[in-house]
């Protein structure tokens, strides 16, 4: 794959991972250009989530390189990669259930703030200043996804659609350079999916690079500049949506599934 290095924010270079005998990701290479929305699609078990876990440090590839903003990040601890500016959501929403909606998003500011344990206990003036800023930025993120009026509610009590929005707000609060969304539309109704679509498009307008795993083809076709297709851990196609739609190998992989909405 000829990657134009200078114009690539994230590049995967022959990345492989097997779970025992199961080759979950096999020699996958692709790039994400800055400012683009790229979708990764593929049947269940194709290795999409595994790919996300490799990019965010939750799994270490057995071979290959992952380059983010010019630095190799494969195998680094998850929190290190997060601090470099990759934020993600999870296929199964993972909120902090014993915290409020606002507090959840405030944790998103972690990488951009500094107050330690002692500062927290003693509340120095600068600690309070920082806390104010954390709160303000978190509120901004909540307003952006339309959850500001629920700031004080318990995160656990939100309906699933809003939980997904909250998870996105939390990721956005960390002001990421690259946002990874793992099936953000799953479990959403038509109206919510529509709102999610607007949100992703608005983020693209603002210049955020997004990598998205999604089964909802309507949404994917609307928002994606490029689509990468995985099947049994292998990359079988990578290109603009219209080319992907016509790709015979992709059609074969999806045979029997009604994905052209």
């Amino acid at each position: 794959m000829g990657l134009k290095q200078e114009n690539i924010l994230l590049a995967l270079d022959n990345v492989s991972l097997a779970f025992g005998g199961l080759q979950a990701v096999e020699q996958v290479s692709f790039g994400v250009a800055p400012g683009a929305v790229k979708a990764v699609i593929g049947p269940n078990g194709a290795g999409k989530t595994t790919l996300f876990n490799l990019m965010t440090g939750f799994l270490t590839p057995q071979a290959g390189r992952i380059v983010f903003a010019g630095e190799e990040i494969q195998g680094r601890p998850a929190h290190r990669i997060a601090r470099r500016g990759i934020a993600r959501t999870f296929q199964l929403v993972q909120l902090f259930d014993h915290m409020t909606v606002l507090e959840n998003v405030m944790v998103g500011r972690h990488r951009l703030s500094h107050s330690g344990l002692l500062a927290g206990a003693l509340q120095f003036p600068w600690t309070r200043r920082e806390e104010k800023e954390i709160r303000a930025k978190a509120m901004e993120a909540l307003e952006f996804v339309g959850l500001a009026d629920r700031a004080r509610q318990s995160a656990a009590a939100l309906p699933l659609g809003l939980k997904r929005m909250l998870e996105i707000a939390r990721a956005l609060a960390s002001a990421p350079t690259l946002l990874l969304l793992d099936e953000p539309a799953s479990g959403l109704d038509a109206v919510e999916t529509e709102r999610l679509q607007d949100l992703i498009l608005e983020l693209r307008r603002q210049g955020l690079t997004t990598l998205l795993v999604e089964h909802d083809m309507g949404l994917t076709m609307e928002v994606a500049d490029e689509i990468a297709v995985l099947n049994y851990g292998k990359l079988i196609a990578d290109g603009p949506p219209r080319a992907i739609q016509k790709n015979p190998e992709v059609i074969a992989a999806y045979l029997g599934t009604d994905w052209q909405t």
């Binding site: 998850a78 997060a82 934020a87 909120l95 902090f96 014993h98 960390s174």
Partner: peptide, 13 residues
């Protein structure tokens, strides 16, 4: 406490 993976994903060591 609530979610180690989620915390890590936000930069918490």
């Amino acid at each position: 406490h609530d979610g180690e993976a989620a915390a890590e994903s936000l930069g918490v060591d």
